[in-house]
Design a protein around this nucleic acid. Structure first.
Lengths: 236, 236
DNA sequence: TTATTTCCTGACCATTTGGTCAAGTTACGC
DNA sequence: GCGTAACTTGACCAAATGGTCAGGAAATAA
């Protein structure tokens, strides 16, 4: 139908492959996010990318190859977030930064999070390997840091593994269940201000919950002043 | 797995329908959970239920009708959990009970939770109506209770909506991401003892996080009985 | 017994699916 | 210009899919 609105070709032939792969990957991400690997069809993806299906198969020979590439990209984003949880002496700083980063990712890349969720629900046919190696190692290394904080009396004795699950689930919920949140918000997406409040609530409750802070000054209820956009002026 | 071990027929003809519908629904739940509506096939479900596909269609004329029934059952379980969050003066009691109930459901009915997750990710084609009515009303009524607790100084000022999201996500994570948790647990499911610890951690961190308790006595670390994760020393 | 209703299922069908292919078109190096 | 490599795509195919159907088996009613 609408066929020639295919997006500009930057500098002619050079870069066409790169450009088109990007378009296809983006379309694939959103279709895989919504329907999972089995439920997604290459026609849907092609349509979303606004190219003929045969063209899609020119760039990605099989549905599985395309899916793998999508999942790979997502894992890289995950790694990026993981880096922000550094080996820092201050749990408030390290955890605030990590949670904030994860919340940002949920907002900026909700489709990726959904693809990940689908992968796990389907028992990780593609990323099982990552889970057993990279993710497991990372988790254990963070557990060491958390246990050190506990030993130093900086936070309450909590089981690191369950604390991490809480952080993952809470932050990713804003991507994966975004539709439900939107519905409960009257059918409109969370505004920037609301998202800021959500973030603050999450950080505050978790940090307070593990005894990293006693009780913070800020009122976590949404203030009704229209002005609310200053940077992360709230921290430790 | 064989073929004719189809389960006993209780009392012959009477109740056959009921019996078979139950078997089919259970099979359908697990297949829909793993692959979503589109990704699931009626053959897979029939196979899982150990009946010919044509027989499945005798009881449930279409895939969609079957799916609707599955989703309906899940929503009823959700309602059951919702009831346990009653209008109680004590936030510690009300929230402990609710979180515990949700954790129990995640353990006893992980497939249901996954079907729900898939539904939301797919933008609730079937349950949108519930979200806008039952779920929304319930959420708002609980928000009132939470705000009252805040006004009474029983908990810190937090935004009720985000607190609820945290409870939902954290508890449901144990069902939806059960495979990831299992992998990180060395490939074995959480034991009863571990699950107990997980529950306690969740309850404790959230209740402490909102200031409902100051700091509780229990040590949330798993008692160090020799049986801990140390099977495969894979590493890099 | 026979009649009637319910249940069971192999064979079948139209549509959708992932993927191919051959005949093009476009861009770049020469 | 011309050749070649990269890109594009309508038409096509075999397999899988949701669903049907006719005929048979089993249970109950008469």
């Amino acid at each position: 139908m609408k066929k020639s609105e295919r997006v500009k070709k930057t500098t002619a032939k050079a870069g066409i492959r790169q450009e088109n792969e990007k378009i296809i990957l983006k379309a694939a991400e959103s279709v895989f996010a919504e329907y999972g690997f089995r439920g997604a069809t290459t026609s849907m993806i092609a349509e979303q990318a606004n190219i003929p299906k045969a063209n899609l198969h020119y760039y990605f020979p099989t549905k599985e190859a395309l899916y793998r590439q999508v999942v790979d990209n997502i894992f890289n984003i995950w790694l990026q977030a993981a880096d922000s949880f550094d080996d820092c002496d201050d749990p408030v700083e390290a955890l605030s930064r990590y949670i904030e980063k994860k919340m940002d990712i949920s907002r900026d890349n909700p489709m990726g999070s959904k693809v990940w969720a689908n992968e796990i629900i389907q028992r990780a046919p593609v990323i099982q390997d990552y889970l057993e190696t990279t993710l497991k190692d990372w988790t254990e290394s963070r557990a060491v840091i958390i246990r050190r904080w506990i030993a130093q009396g900086k936070i309450n004795p909590v089981d690191p593994q369950y604390l991490l699950y809480m952080i993952w689930s809470t932050t990713q919920h804003y991507a994966d269940f975004n539709h439900q949140i939107e519905t409960l918000n009257g059918g409109t997406p969370l505004s920037d201000a609301q998202y800021r409040v959500a973030k603050d609530n999450v950080i505050e409750i978790i940090l307070t919950g593990i005894g990293a802070v006693q009780r913070r000054r800020s009122n976590l209820l949404q203030d009704n002043s229209p002005k609310d956009q200053q940077e992360k002026g709230d921290k430790a």
